[in-house]
Amino acid sequence: MTVAELVDGPLWTVALTVFVAGVAWRLLVLIATGWKRDLSHPRSGSLGGAIRGVVGRFLPSQGMAGRLRLHLVAGYLFHLGLFALLFFAAPHVDFYRDRLFGFDWTPLPHWAFILAAEAAFLGLLMLWLNRVLNPVTRLISESGDHAASVLTFLVMLTGCLALARSHETLRLLHFFVVELFMIYFPFSRLMHSFTFLLSRAAQGAHYGRRGVRV
C-alpha cells in the first residue's frame, strides 16, 4: 500500500471513526452524568432561557465589549473565517459530495475564499499570541490548548498550500493533517465546537427559571 492509498483509505476511515465515535461518546458521557432536578418554584421558563443563552452569548455582555476588543475581533475573525473555509471552500464542497453526502452546494468564489482564509489566519494568530503573552491565558492554558492551536494552524496552512490542486503531495499532506486533527478532536478542547451549545443552554435554562436574562 502506498502512502497515498493509506492516507486516502484506511487512515481516513480510522480518523472518521474516531471523530464520530469520540464526539458521540463525549457528549453521551456528559448527558449521562444526569441532571439534578430543581425543586424550587421557577420564576420563569427554562426553555426560553436556554434559547436566549445559546443565542445571546454570541454578543458580549453589557459593558464588556471595551475590555474584550481583542477577544471579540480575533474570535469572530477566526471562527467566521474557519466556518466559511470548512463548509464553503470549493475543494471541501467537492469532497463532501464525493466522499460523504452525495450532494453539493454553492461554494465560495475564489476571492471570498482568500478573504476567509486571511481572516481565519489573522484571528488564530491573534488568539494564540494572546494565549502565549497574556498573563491570564498563560496561567490557565494547558499543553492541549497549544496543541489544538498548532494543529488548527497546520490544517489551514496545508489547506492553502493544496488549494491549487496541482500537487497531489500537497493535497495528501493536507488530508493527513486533517486526519490527525480529527483523531485529536474528541480528546481535546476542540470539542467546544459542540459542547458550547450544551453549556450555554444549561446556563440560560438555569438563570432563565430564575427570571434572569443571560
Binding site: R26, L30, I31, A32, T33, G34, W35, K36, S61, M64, R67, L68, H71, G75, L127, N130, R131, N134, V136, T137, I140, S141, E142, D145, R189, M191, H192, T195, F196, L198, S199, R200, A202, Q203, H206
Partner: peptide, 26 residues
C-alpha cells in the same frame, strides 16, 4: 457534578474572558 456543571467544565476554552469580568482581577 451533574450534566449541567460537567457541560460547563467541558466547554471552557481557557480564553480568559472571565478575568475581565472579575472585580478583583480588574
Amino acid at each position: 457534578l451533574d450534566a449541567r456543571l460537567a457541560s460547563h467544565l467541558d466547554a471552557c476554552v481557557h480564553c480568559g474572558v472571565c478575568a475581565e469580568a472579575c472585580h478583583y482581577y480588574v
